[in-house]
């Protein structure tokens, strides 16, 4: 099954050219990419992720707001009873924040030098390792 990814762009970062390029590259790699536009709040990101039932949420932040956005998104996912969606991040991330974000449950971080191929490989890897697709097929089989 195609991997379904939400590409989210929170905050006030001015343009979405980068996000659109990423969305197209992921599509060309065979993924189904939900794009939600600019200025997404954590609440909007989580609502979209739940309704779309994506495998992965990819959040790109250039403005350095990682330490506010990611904890909020992870907390809201928990509150909505959704703990099987993988969260990854990209953008300009302070070196010291990387380990903190990973400890919170962000599965992968890409810095701004990452190529789209790095992203594709990274998403495929985290889905294979942490994704719920396998869990769900197994669950369906055991109840069938």
């Amino acid at each position: 099954m195609p991997i379904k990814v939400l590409v989210a762009k929170p905050g006030l970062d001015g343009h979405d050219r980068g996000a659109k390029i990423v969305a197209r590259a992921l599509r060309d790699a065979g993924m189904e990419v939900v794009y939600t536009g600019l200025h997404q709040t954590p609440e909007m990101i989580v609502t979209a992720a739940v309704q779309e039932d994506v495998d992965v949420i990819g959040i790109s932040i250039l403005s350095g707001a990682h330490m506010t956005v990611f904890p909020k998104v992870l907390k809201l996912l928990g509150e909505r009873g959704v703990d099987d969606i993988v969260v990854i991040g990209g953008g300009v991330i302070q070196e010291a924040d990387g380990p903190k974000l990973k400890a919170l449950g962000v599965r992968e971080l890409f810095d701004s030098d990452a190529t789209t191929q790095d992203l594709i490989d990274g998403i495929e890897r985290v889905v294979a390792e942490f994704g719920r697709a396998q869990k769900r097929t197994d669950a369906a089989r055991s109840t069938a």
């Binding site: 195609p2 197209r24 599509r27 790699a29 189904e32 990419v33 939600t36 909007m44 979209a48």
Partner: peptide, 18 residues
Amino acid sequence: FTHGAVLGDRVRMQRHSG
């Protein structure tokens, strides 16, 4: 060809998110 897709319709409906 790739079976991928960009799904962008909800961009226009975001104000109903809450």
